[in-house]
Simulated assay, not measured.
Amino acid sequence: MKICFLNPFGTDAYDEIIGTVLKGSLLPDTTLEIRHLDAGPRNLDYYAPKQVVQVEILKAVKQAEVDGFDAVVIGCCYDPALTEARELVSIPVIGPLESSVGLARPFGHRFAIVTDHHKAVPMLQDTIRIYGAEPNCVGVESIGWFVDDMVLDPVAVAEDTYLKILDVMHRTGAETVIVGCTIVSACYELAAANGDSKFSELSVVNPNIMAVKAAELFAQLNSRGMYRISRAAFYQALSSHDPIEAAEVAPYFQSTRV
């Protein structure tokens, strides 16, 4: 299987840390390529830049399909352009938050989300509601870090995350915590991998790993003709409704990536 993990940021600053965290979780026959956006804003923390980023994501996902990838992970817990990407391509497209929410129950009955900063909290709360998981989500809280600063001190990010998880579990009764930012989660897992046992003692759901394992699963199903995504309504492609209009808008989603 050939999986593309797309960092939806206009920089390569986060590629290495994501690759380091994920390399030990792959099946033997899985090839993982980390990509990032070549155009657009460096991050999508604010709503206006996010709209620009989402167009670039759609171009990158379409290019990944052209390049022969079996599945794509959009590597951000906002799950940006996830629905639109599934409408656009035939290969499975995976969102880290959706995957983590869907797989949280085996880790614990009630979960909380610990994210990066205050701006992300309402966005994730809205997404949890859309995913139908609000009854089991006891809260969304942040550690007060923005993505540009995280790679400068991943150890401090991991420590702050650990303390916040302990606090959230104690106050809310959450049995498990989704670390709801891919970069925060990467910092946390890197600290765990470096031998500090306290990070491995807590029930934590890593959205990077959940998304990649889901990508492997759905890519495998697709290879066997069992990825039967419904095109009846929600994921209906424009081409099935109006092929002429679909052809007219197709150039908007063509990547300039070589």
Rank of each mutant, 00 (worst) to 15 (best):
A193T: 07
I130F: 09
P251F: 12
L97W: 11
E175D: 04
S255W: 01
P251S: 07
V168G: 07
D38Y: 12
G180N: 04
G102K: 04
N206H: 13
V155H: 06
P207Q: 12
V205P: 14
P41F: 08
D67R: 09
G68L: 06
I165Y: 00
G139A: 05
F234P: 15
A174W: 06
G10V: 03
D153S: 05
H117W: 11
D167T: 08
A193D: 13
V93G: 00
V138M: 02
F146D: 05
D38Q: 15
E33L: 13
I18T: 14
R231C: 11
V114D: 00
G102W: 09
N222Y: 14
K198C: 08
M210P: 15
L58C: 02
V205I: 11
C76P: 09
H241G: 13
N194A: 15
V147K: 02
R231A: 04
I128M: 09
E245Y: 06
I165T: 00
I113W: 01
Y47P: 12
A215M: 05
A232P: 15
L166R: 15
F199P: 06
L58N: 00
V157T: 14
S100C: 11
N208P: 14
P41Q: 13
T182A: 10
L190F: 14
K213R: 11
D70W: 08
A13E: 03
I91T: 00
P243C: 11
R257H: 12
N208V: 04
R257W: 02
T115A: 08
E141I: 00
H118A: 13
T176G: 01
L27V: 01
Q125T: 05
L152F: 10
Q125G: 04
F9S: 07
F107E: 02
F69E: 01
R228A: 12
K2R: 09
L163Q: 11
P243V: 01
G144E: 14
G10N: 00
L202Q: 02
C187V: 00
Q236L: 13
I94L: 08
I57G: 04
K23C: 13
G225Y: 04
C77M: 02
I17A: 01
I113Q: 07
S99T: 05
A104H: 06
F253E: 06
A120I: 03
T182D: 05
G40P: 02
A250I: 10
P135M: 00
P154V: 07
E65P: 13
P49M: 06
H109K: 15
L22P: 08
V212F: 01
K213V: 03
V157A: 10
D15Y: 09
V177Y: 11
A71W: 13
F146S: 12
V249L: 02
V140Y: 01
A71I: 10
E98L: 14
P122M: 10
E216W: 09
V249G: 06
P154Q: 14
I3P: 02
K50Q: 07
A250W: 11
Y188L: 05
A250K: 09
I244A: 15
L22Y: 07
P49L: 12
P207W: 12
G108I: 05
T115I: 02
D242Y: 04
D167M: 05
F253M: 12
M226L: 15
K59N: 08
G68K: 03
A193Y: 10
W145H: 14
D167C: 10
T115Q: 07
A186L: 13
V147E: 04
